[in-house]
Amino acid sequence: MPTTDACGQGVQIAALTDAPNMETLANNLAVGLVPRSVMRFASASARNATLSSPTAGMTAFLIAEKLLTVYDGTAWTVVAAGTSAWSTIPLASGFSHNGNSNGTAQYRIVNLFGELTVMLQGGIDISYSGSPAVISNGGIITSTALPSAARPGSLRTVPASCSAVTSDSLSLKLDAQPDGHLRIVGTTASTATERITPPWISLSGLLYSL
């Protein structure tokens, strides 16, 4: 009768006393080795449809998402993300790129400690209108929403550094909204007791989880 491999992985190996059967031999090797290799699927949905009862340790690469995933016994978790190029954030009227010479405002999706995360970089110039001064577009800097892959499941608020010119604060809040828009929060009228109308905000080094 067949024995199992010496590494304790449960791969069946035909014994010399077994009746010759190439189909059984090939099937035993495929069934034993494929689930223990890095499997490849077109997408997460294709993986889930094929591996309806995964076992802990299974590893699968998702082509569409560019993610390497491992089943931990409870759920599929991301262990690595493929190359993710920077994408320029589309800005609404009243905002422009390269604030404080920080470069174009951009985002990309990365894998941080097994969790998909959006990384930001660049700077944004901010314009105000009226008297007292009011930030453009209600503080929403995006002209169109970021793609669904970059939208958090719930509101994510992170601090962002800003100019001290015409501002008594060195930071504002940046809200990453579930609808895919980014919004600057915390400006006040220039005539208020505390002036917070900075001409630029930096996105460099900001992260928010998905």
Rank of each mutant, 00 (worst) to 15 (best):
T4L: 13
D5N: 14
D5R: 09
D5E: 13
C7F: 15
Q9G: 11
G10V: 12
A14R: 15
L16G: 13
L16C: 04
T17H: 10
T17V: 06
A19S: 12
E23H: 03
L25D: 04
A26E: 02
A30H: 02
G32M: 03
L33E: 05
L33N: 06
S37H: 05
F41W: 11
F41H: 14
A44S: 13
S45C: 03
A46V: 08
R47Q: 11
N48M: 08
N48H: 07
T50W: 11
S53A: 15
P54E: 03
A60S: 12
A60C: 14
F61C: 06
F61D: 08
A64L: 06
A64W: 03
K66I: 00
L67Y: 00
V70R: 05
A75T: 12
W76G: 08
V78Y: 07
A80Q: 14
S84V: 00
W86E: 02
S87H: 05
T88G: 03
I89S: 11
S93V: 09
S96W: 01
N98W: 01
N98E: 01
G99H: 02
N100V: 01
N102E: 11
G103R: 00
A105Y: 02
Q106D: 03
N111R: 11
N111F: 09
S131F: 13
S136T: 05
G138W: 01
I141N: 01
A145P: 13
L146P: 12
A149P: 15
R151Q: 15
L155W: 02
T157D: 00
V158G: 07
P159M: 10
A160T: 01
S163D: 08
D168Q: 15
L174S: 06
L174G: 04
D175V: 01
D175A: 11
D179G: 11
D179Q: 09
G180L: 10
H181L: 08
H181K: 13
L182Q: 03
V185C: 01
G186R: 01
T187F: 03
S190R: 08
T191F: 01
T191S: 15
W200N: 05
I201D: 05
I201H: 04
L203M: 06
S204I: 00
G205T: 08
Y208V: 04
